[in-house]
Every structure is written in structure tokens, then in C-alpha cells.
């Protein structure tokens, strides 16, 4: 009985054409490893942040390609799996300090965005479910803020670039827009600037010295101060 329950949890997957039975609870990365593969490239944080394990898969008897981060996607029955080690993508070289946040900058550094045919293939490929086409389009018309907002959750996995028939690298365009936005357009955090100035002006030196002393002489008192400290919310 127990054996059967065990068996039910297995699914059939095809790794680069070869059939394997793997537990259904595994994600794609773990399924590969369960089957005996070892990742050298195409793997990173295993937590869905770094974008290194972006992959494509397909189901048996379905023509559509699906896209996911291999560390995030649970295996399902009849999945055809593979690994995509690395996307050779073009990246413009620039010095952010020398750029002006003019809308045309995106088109100047990545002029190939002018080739976008609005096919939406990039959006369909994005494992982060971003509206990639929309941000490429916003880039063409020079709307840095819109590009920055729409691409905010991009993890640079490369799938959009791999699929784009116009050989555009959307994520590098998005990154440039976010950098420009962050440096030149987003409102400055004035309180942070003020605090940095205060630190440079040694406003807190005495207080810090006192704490250092306490750390050596009366740790319990330091703990008490820490627990009872005033916390500003918002």
C-alpha cells in the first residue's frame, strides 16, 4: 500500500529526449539532479532571484513552448525538459554619469529596438510575467519612467532576448532605463542625504563611542537600550 502511494507521486518526464520517472514534488532543477545530472552552468541561487536557470519546456503532444525558472517550476507529467546554459546577449557600454535622462538615450544605445514588430513573443516568454513588449515599446518612444516601472521585476533571465525575432535584448534596455530612472528621475531620498551628511559631520561619533564602551563594560545595559530604543515607523 505504502509503495503504491509512493508511486503515485512519481511523474514521467523527458530530459533531453530521455525518459525518467521523478517525484512530482521536485522542481525542474531537482528533477535533473534526481535523474543524475549535475549542473555546472545554468544554475544559480535556486531561489527564483538570479535568473540563471531560465528554461523552456513543452508537454507531450503540445506544440507550445513554455518558459520558467527551473528552480521554481514543479515537474508535471509528460514534460519535455532541457537546460539553457547561457544567452550571449549584446550589452551597450556606457558611463551612467555621462548620460542624460533624455528619452532618446535608450534608442541611441540600443538602436535595434527600432526593429520591434510588436509580436509579443517576449512577453509570452517572460517567467516573471512582465509585459515585455510594452516596455520595449515604451523604450522606442522614450518613456524612461514607463520602461523602468514595467521592467522592475526583471531578473535578467534572458528568455525574452532568446525568443525575440528582431534580436532585441529587452532586459538590458530595461536595466538602462531603471538606472537612468534611479539616478536622475526618481525623487531623491532627502532624509538619507541628510543623515549621510550628519555622519560625515561626526554628529553621532560620541554616541557610538559610548555604545562601544558599553559593549565592553556592560553588555546587559546595551541590550536593554537596544530593546527599548525608539522605532520610527513610516
Amino acid at each position: 500500500m505504502e509503495e503504491e502511494a509512493e508511486k503515485e507521486k512519481m511523474v514521467k518526464v523527458y530530459i533531453m529526449g530521455r525518459e525518467f520517472e521523478v517525484p512530482a514534488t521536485l522542481n525542474i532543477v531537482k528533477a535533473f539532479e534526481y535523474a543524475g545530472y549535475r549542473f555546472v552552468r545554468g544554475i544559480g541561487c535556486r531561489g527564483g532571484y538570479c535568473g540563471a536557470c531560465a528554461t523552456v519546456y513543452r508537454f507531450k503532444d503540445d506544440y507550445r513552448l513554455n518558459f520558467a525558472l527551473a528552480c521554481q517550476k514543479a515537474v508535471e507529467n509528460n514534460m519535455y525538459l532541457t537546460i539553457l546554459p547561457f544567452m550571449p546577449a549584446e550589452k551597450a557600454i556606457y558611463d551612467l554619469n555621462n548620460l542624460k535622462p533624455r528619452g532618446s538615450v535608450l534608442l541611441e544605445l540600443y538602436p535595434e529596438i527600432a526593429r520591434c514588430v510588436a509580436c509579443n513573443t517576449c512577453t509570452k516568454a517572460c517567467p516573471q510575467e512582465l509585459e515585455v513588449m510594452d516596455y520595449v515599446q515604451a523604450a522606442i518612444r522614450g518613456d524612461i519612467e514607463e520602461v523602468s516601472n514595467l521592467s522592475f521585476d526583471c531578473i535578467q533571465c534572458g528568455l525574452c532576448a532568446m525568443r525575440c525575432p528582431a534580436e532585441i535584448v529587452p532586459y538590458n534596455v530595461g536595466q538602462l532605463a531603471r538606472r537612468l530612472y534611479g539616478k536622475y528621475i526618481a525623487p531623491q531620498a532627502m532624509h538619507t542625504h541628510k543623515r549621510v551628511e550628519e555622519i560625515h559631520a561626526c554628529v553621532f561619533d560620541e554616541e557610538l563611542d559610548n555604545y562601544s564602551l558599553l559593549a565592553k563594560e556592560d553588555v546587559e545595559k546595551l541590550k536593554k537600550i537596544y530593546v527599548e530604543r525608539e522605532i520610527k515607523v513610516g
Binding site: 520591434c116 514588430v117 510588436a118 513588449m133 515599446q137 522606442i140 525575432p165
Partner: peptide
């Protein structure tokens, strides 16, 4: 809205450029 592509595709077998 998406860029219209500016110039039309003028060949009968090219649908890609009518997508936008």
C-alpha cells in the same frame, strides 16, 4: 498602443509586420 511599424509591409507573404 504599439509602434505601427511606420512603413507597411509590401510583400504578400509577410504577415509579421502587420501584427503591430
Amino acid at each position: 498602443w504599439v509602434c505601427c511599424g511606420t512603413v507597411s509591409s509590401l510583400t504578400t507573404d509577410d504577415l509579421m509586420h502587420h501584427l503591430a
